[in-house]
């Protein structure tokens, strides 16, 4: 059986919030080592890959691997029933038909428990090859979120150009054009504000801003986000989690 306790429900609430625009139904895979998920959106443009290692939980026990087929919208509704600061416990039997979600509010002495009906989710598992990326840029999540939001007011797509000078986001839409240039910088007092650019060779690719804005829902999970780009490979947008990560892959736009 599975029994997994999180000190703060906010972590799972934010994770589910950040994937629900991309994925409707998915399998949460629970194993001895932790909880993971891999799912593609219906149009096969974006893929989300989540790992929450067992050490990211206050308590974690999973005797044998369990696959939890979940409707993400339904899980979102249940998670909204708990407070951000509540202790959250997930429980499931070995061949479960429901996932038990328990919230404990120690201040109010309030315990609430909900059972989410599980479903069979027929899902292809994709092999994600190890990729040598041409460029990796780590920046504050708030900055990336702002850029994606601002440029989406002008256009549906953004061109991302990385060279040794820094990273440029630019777009050209019906009402006009915009661009933002970020240069590498290090902030010793506030390292989360640093911008780090690692580059093997310059790279320029275009991406759909609607998806980038979906990914930015994960901004509350981490202070920094890393973008990895290569050739015509999918963009990797990674947010680090306590003992894990949430990674989004986005297929680039092709040709012009």
């Amino acid at each position: 059986m599975l029994e997994a306790k999180l000190e703060q429900a906010a972590l799972l609430k934010r994770i589910v919030d950040s994937i629900r625009d991309i994925v409707q139904d998915c399998n949460f895979e629970c194993s001895e080592s932790g909880l993971s998920l891999q799912a593609m959106d219906n149009s096969h443009i974006a893929l989300v890959s989540l790992l929450l290692g067992k050490d990211g939980f206050t308590d974690y026990r999973c005797d044998r691997s369990i696959s939890l087929g979940v409707n993400v919208g339904a899980l979102t509704k249940i998670l909204k029933c708990g407070g951000n600061d509540d202790v959250l416990t997930l429980r499931a039997e070995d061949k479960p038909s429901v996932l038990s979600v328990m919230f404990e509010d120690s201040i109010q002495d309030r315990i609430s428990e909900y059972n989410l009906k599980l479903m069979d989710v027929d899902q292809e598992h994709m092999g994600i090859p190890d990729t040598e990326y041409s460029a990796s840029v780590t920046m504050p999540t708030a900055e990336f979120q702002r850029i994606a939001r601002d440029l989406h007011t002008l256009s549906d797509s953004v061109e991302i150009d990385v060279n040794k000078e820094g990273i440029t986001f630019s777009c050209d839409g019906d009402i006009g054009a915009g661009s933002i240039v970020l240069k590498p910088s290090s902030n010793i007092d506030r390292p989360e504000q640093s911008i780090n650019v690692e580059i093997v060779e310059p790279v320029t690719l275009s991406f759909n801003l609607k998806y980038l804005n979906h990914f930015c829902k994960a901004s509350g999970l981490s202070n920094q986000v890393t973008l990895r780009l290569s050739g015509e490979a999918p963009l990797l947008v990674e947010y680090k989690l306590p003992n894990g990560f949430i990674r989004f892959f986005l297929a680039p736009k092709i040709g012009d």
Binding site: S43, M126, I254
Partner: peptide
């Protein structure tokens, strides 16, 4: 205009 690529070509189904 650029067309939106798909992931299928990059990731193989296991």
């Amino acid at each position: 205009t650029a067309t939106q690529g798909r992931l299928d070509g990059f990731f193989k189904v296991l």
